[in-house]
Design a protein around this nucleic acid. Structure first.
Lengths: 160, 160
DNA sequence: CTAATTCCCAAGTGATTTACTAGGTAATGC
DNA sequence: GCATTACCTAGTAAATCACTTGGGAATTAG
C-alpha cells in the first residue's frame, strides 16, 4: 500500500465527483477550481482512474466525468491503487531465503500489516463517506464517533 | 498521513528491533544485513526515530539500539510520523472559504478519512504485531483472521 | 593508553516522483 | 463551424528516495 499526496489528490477529486455528480457530469475544470488542483494534473489522474473504470468520461459541451460505478462499489483502496500503483515491498520475493533463513519473519509481519492497511481502506467506500457527511449535516453539531472504529486495542495515548 | 516506502523501511526496521532486541541491543549493521537496507540510510531513519524517542542508542562495542519504550507503547503511526512527517493536505487551512463557500465539504470528508486512517495505524502497536506472530508460530498452520477486522461495512467484493 | 567498535553527523548524488505547463487532437452540442 | 469538453504526449523545476562518502565522538576490550 502506498498513501502519497498523489493518492490524496485522487481521493479528493473522486469525493468531489461523488458529491457533485448527482445530476449530470462534472468537468475537470470544476474539480480543478473546487479543489485547487491543476487541470492537466487532474487529466493525468483521471486517465489512470479511467483505466481502472472508476470514472467514465463524456466529451463535448455539457460533458465531463461520471463515476464508473456506484459510489458504494468504489473503495478508497481502489482509488489509491489506480493512481499510485502497488509496489511490492519486501525484497525476498515471498520465496527467497532472505539472509539467514527464518529471518524473513519480519517480512511476514510487514506483509500482514500491509494487507491489514489495505483491507481497511478497501472497506471504506465513497458512498460511506458521502452518507456519513449527509448524516452529519442533518444532526448538525452533535458529537459523532469516527465512521468505523477499530475496537480491540486499548493501548492508550498515542495520537501525535 | 503519508505511507511511503520510507515509512515502510522504518516500520520494518523497528519490527526487526522489537523481535531481536529481547536480550541486548541490536546494531544497525545487523538490521542492515537482515532487512537489506543500507547502513547509512538506516542511520538517517534512526536519527528521526531517536528524536521522537522511539529508540535509544548505545555507543561503543557491544552497543546498538534499544526500543525507546515498550513495544506496546509504540504504534505504527508513531513510527511513520517520525520519519515521514505529517504533511497537512487540504489547502484551505481549516478556516479559509475554499473557493465558493460550502465547497470545503470535500475537504472535511478527506480530513475525516485521513484521521480515520491515522487512528487505525495508531491502534496497532509493535507489540501487537510481535504477539500475533508468536501465536501464529505456536498454532502453526491454522487459519487465522487478520489481527483486527474493521467489522461494520458489508460493501462486498472490492479487493484488487 | 590504544585500537576496535559502535553510534552520530553532514554533505552530496543519481534516479525517481511530484505537480505542473505547453501544445496539441478527437468527439460532441448548439 | 465553432466552442467546449475529454483525451494525449512531452517537457520541467522542485522535491524526495535511497544511498555513498567521509568524517567525527563515545565506549569497551585488550
Amino acid at each position: 500500500m502506498r498513501l502519497s499526496t498523489k493518492g490524496r489528490y485522487a481521493v479528493t477529486a473522486m469525493l468531489d465527483l461523488a458529491l457533485n455528480g448527482k445530476n449530470g457530469p462534472v468537468t475537470l475544470a470544476e474539480i480543478s477550481e473546487n479543489q485547487g488542483i491543476s487541470l492537466s494534473y487532474l487529466e493525468q489522474l483521471f486517465a489512470a482512474l479511467r483505466n481502472k473504470e472508476l470514472v467514465r468520461g463524456v466529451r463535448g459541451p455539457g460533458g465531463g466525468y461520471y463515476l464508473g460505478k456506484s459510489a458504494d462499489e468504489i473503495s478508497i483502496a481502489n482509488i489509491i491503487c489506480a493512481v499510485d500503483e502497488w509496489v511490492e515491498f519486501t525484497r525476498c520475493g515471498g520465496r527467497q531465503n532472505c539472509s539467514g533463513g527464518a529471518r524473513c519473519l519480519t517480512h511476514t509481519l510487514w506483509d500482514d500489516l500491509s494487507s491489514e492497511i489495505f483491507n481497511f481502506l478497501a472497506n471504506i467506500s465513497l458512498g460511506d463517506l458521502v452518507r456519513r457527511n449527509l448524516n452529519k449535516s442533518e444532526e448538525s453539531e452533535e458529537e459523532q464517533p469516527p465512521l468505523s472504529v477499530v475496537g480491540e486495542s486499548d493501548s492508550s495515548s498515542q495520537a501525535a
